[in-house]
Design a protein around this nucleic acid. Sequence first.
DNA 1: TCCTTAATGATATAATATACCATTAACAGC
DNA 2: GCTGTTAATGGTATATTATATCATTAAGGA
Lengths: 127, 127
Amino acid sequence: MNQRNTFQRTLTLDAVHALANHPTADDVYNFVHTKYPQISRTTVYRNLNKLCDSGDLLRVKIFGAADRFDHNLQSHYHFRCDECGSVSDLDLPYIENINQMCAGIGGRIVNAHQILFDGICTECQKK
Amino acid sequence: MNQRNTFQRTLTLDAVHALANHPTADDVYNFVHTKYPQISRTTVYRNLNKLCDSGDLLRVKIFGAADRFDHNLQSHYHFRCDECGSVSDLDLPYIENINQMCAGIGGRIVNAHQILFDGICTECQKK
DNA sequence: TCCTTAATGATATAATATACCATTAACAGC
DNA sequence: GCTGTTAATGGTATATTATATCATTAAGGA
């Protein structure tokens, strides 16, 4: 018996899909908590980790801020607004060969790379 | 009177140069603390921030870990070892036009980008 | 030397996340 | 359907990183 389907885990995964735009663990907790008030914050964090391990979610690590969880499982880059903190997906070509370039200059084993842009989003420019 | 030269600030800057390899604020505090035990952790954090503001240091934000401070002021990318957590500079060409590419696909104002690679460093491969 | 105020140091607090552990419940086997 | 194993939960405690607050100290211009 390896993994059990609890409704807490289902609620957690559904919340990330419902929230859609890169929710933090806290966002997910708040969303789930309205539907099932007795859920523990620990359970939400734990299930988010499990769901990332199993490949059902992608963890988007953000410099100096809470991790985000993404239901878009394809490799892609992100933009964070310095003003409002919102995170959005970027439709930029994924640089496939850059990991090899990195590995080539020093004998490192390179597993992955992430690119995070920052600046001002279109919403905040209107203000 | 805009900025004052305290020996605490000098100690902080010197420590980053002495430690050289991307120390965290805590690393810097420990180093300075041996030389001047009565220094406050707050003062080290505050001075590191000031030194970044004034352009004397570069802050290297690390996904899900403490910020690092770099005395190398040129734009460059970083590699972090998943095993030991060490951070190293990469001698890769800086992608100058990628900020414009990002700005071009959605009306965002793009200030900067960072690329962080991860994998296994040469030291940890030996083990 | 004096005065203004930047900077310090100590403590409190915020934010994010995991550790621990007694209790609960999922689900495989009968 | 019942039982037993153990994964998962929920609550609390704790770790880590970093900033806020504020009374006190001291840098450096006048």
